[in-house]
Design a binder for these strands. Structure first.
Lengths: 141, 141
DNA sequence: TATTGTTATACTCTATAACTATA
DNA sequence: TATAGTTATAGAGTATAACAATA
């Protein structure tokens, strides 16, 4: 049940369509993570480690508590997908690196998560541009 | 971290936009649930109980195991938001009803989850129709 | 004093397996 | 035998609070 929404009672047609799209996207993401034996949370962290980075920046970007990241990174480390190193510039900080095994799993996830790619194949370049513009406008500022 | 994705390395502009939209939608859903002291899973179940229904249909619709629904419904019941009744037509089945308190919380959630509503206010009727058509086409069959 | 990260704790979500009751 | 639901269990996600080390 990673999938969230469900259209409200009085929702309009476009709102139902938005829900269907988000629902499909989320389910595809979960399936792609599962194909690599990853939880959604683990996949979220792993794919963001294409460059070495610290714990707190991950927590900020993912909108969760730092202690949560500590746990997820610990599980990824125990499976050999990441390593932790002291930051020479700040004795408090830790820098996380993805290992070659982690790179492979992350790449496997990227290959498996084909939802957006497949969906956009059904649209022409002009339609993609129009969709981008409409969604940007809908998102506002 | 209900939010899932994160754009892939080689993702196109429209794919980034899709991610931004899904990300915003999911975060807004989570915030609306939290505003009613509900988890995302609890909100998913509660909003689907506008009519009396059985456990297995919820599990099927939400794509999770029946034992999971048992737990979530039990928590909702302990907070007075739903009740369970025997199904007179099938001695094995249970029918779940939302209580008046549950109705109020569900309505509170609907009011708080204004993401899709607010986003569509930024588009004209024609733009909404066009967006619907594009997303439907992108979703395919 | 403030920040980075960890540990301890508690609760929720989730699936699997075993079970009861009913169809 | 098959289905609806529960219970027991275990692992994972999550936040809060308390803590150590460093800035």
């Amino acid at each position: 049940m990673t999938v969230t929404s469900g259209p409200t009672a009085g929702a309009s047609k476009v709102e139902h369509t938005l829900y269907d799209f988000v629902d499909s996207y989320d389910r595809a993401y979960e399936a792609a993570a599962a194909s690599q034996q990853l939880s959604v949370a683990q996949a979220c962290v792993l794919v963001r480690l294409d460059q070495r980075r610290g714990m707190s920046s991950l927590a900020t970007e993912l909108g969760c508590d730092a202690s949560n990241i500590t746990q997820i990174v610990a599980r990824l480390e125990s499976r050999g997908f990441v390593t932790r190193h002291a930051d020479p510039a700040d004795g408090r900080a830790r820098l996380i690196d993805r290992t070659p095994d982690g790179d492979a799993v992350s790449a496997g996830f990227d290959s498996a998560f084909e939802f957006a790619r497949e969906a956009m194949k059904r649209l022409s370049a002009e339609e993609q541009d129009h969709l981008t513009a409409l969604l940007r406008k809908a998102l506002g500022g």
